[in-house]
């Protein structure tokens, strides 16, 4: 099998798809107080898998909105205003759909690829691990 180094340097997605990689990246982000970006990214994936007709799904959509989007959290700061207002409208109308966080997730993912992921690959925590 490939070494962690080979797997994790391929792409952010290959890092996040690996249990140890995701865990180490999480520890790295905790130091920077940016762990919410990672939790939000996973929450979007989890939300997409939920049954849209289950009442729990609306509650989860609201929880994601409250926790990461409506305030001035590290996630909200990295999202476009139009993306945030789109999600706010969907929540207000209670007309949720499985793809409602896709655009927001894409924006957060791009942001992680451009900065946190690059910084992770040169961080002490990563270098010590490999």
């Amino acid at each position: 099998p490939d070494s962690p180094r080979t797997r994790w340097t391929k792409s952010l997605l290959s890092l996040l798809g690996d249990q140890d990689g995701a865990q180490l990246f999480r520890t790295f982000l905790e130091r920077d107080k940016h762990v919410d970006t990672l939790d939000f990214w996973f929450a979007c994936n989890g939300f997409r898998q939920m049954d849209i007709n289950n009442t729990k799904t609306l509650r989860v959509a609201k929880a994601i909105y409250k926790r990461y989007i409506e305030n001035s959290s590290v996630v909200a700061k990295q999202l476009k205003a139009a993306t945030k207002s789109y999600i706010r409208d969907v929540i207000r109308r209670q007309q949720i759909d499985s793809a409602m966080f896709d655009q927001a997730q894409t924006e957060i993912q791009s942001s992680m690829e451009d900065s946190a992921y690059q910084n992770f690959l040169t961080s002490d925590i990563y270098l010590e691990y490999i």
């Binding site: 995701a22 989890g46 898998q49 989860v60 994601i64």
Partner: peptide
Amino acid sequence: LESEDDLLQKCITSAMPKQN
């Protein structure tokens, strides 16, 4: 009834990678 926080945490955990 589960709290929104619990539901959110479950949602996050469900999407995390399992054993390699």
